[in-house]
Amino acid sequence: MWSYVLRRLGQALLVLFVAFTATFFLLHYLPGDSVIARYGSPQLGLSSAEVAEIRASIGADQPVWTQFWLALTGFLTGDLGFSTQTGASVSSMLAAALPATAALTLTSFLLAVVLAFTIAFTSTFSPFAWLRRVTRALPPLFISIPVFWLAIVLIQVFSFQLGLVPVIGASDLQALILPSLAISVPIAAPLAQILVSSIDEVRSQPFVSVVRAKGASNNWLLWRNVLGNALLPALTIAGLLFGELIAGAVVTETIFGRSGIGRMTEQAVANRDMPVLQAIVVLSAATFVLINLIVDLLYPVLDPRLRKKVRA
């Protein structure tokens, strides 16, 4: 068991290193850089010698491998560098933005899970055939709704027309409602789709008719027999969907004017703020890797058939 966890952690570190390296070189070789973006504007009236001086002061004139080495050792020792745009330290910027985004993504994820399960249960176990048909059509519909469009529609309807959620002066909780709803819908869709098909699949297995022949009710069947078997594929998808959450945060934070990692990403991209981008990519990769590690460790908990393999 522990050797399995250690092996997986080793793989995770490798993934992080690759993500770091790929980001670094991609950003480095893209045309234009953060110094030009910040100081290159003719309105600032800086001469090219002065710009080169600024470049030298932040080490941007050094050979690429030296820069890579400095950035890597910096990351390893916890020094994420300074934003070219604002001059603030990247770690303090992340620390300020992280809690809001964490709250947003977590709420969205929980909402997505609730939504997905509601759709899945209704479309498989509801006694009404018409309701089963209607809910079965929801996942394909949901997955084709773009987040930015949904976000705008939600603001339009709930804030401006119905006035249910204030746009200005909202409490922290109120401010969470619409953005997390916007993110959760497209995340719930694939999750619900997978759940529906795996519940269908489990229900067609012979052991289900054996349980029914014992006199089980539909509820008994769903909660005590079908669900435990149907969760595994959904869990895999849930881990992979985490990437969607981050993408969703970029869009919704911008549209709803929330501060957070998503907003920070949007601005850093606009300004070619490389130290910030580098840190955000590594942070997202780390979270993604961690979540999927947890998912992998959950498999044997849910399915006894996988326990032996893990132990071996």
Partner: peptide, 23 residues
């Protein structure tokens, strides 16, 4: 439902997948 399992018991065909695998 009260009759199934209580008055009529079923022995199924294929033992390999007639038991809930996660129980």
């Amino acid at each position: 439902r009260p009759i199934r399992g209580r008055r009529i018991g079923l022995i199924p065909q294929d033992p390999s997948n007639s038991l809930n695998p996660v129980r």
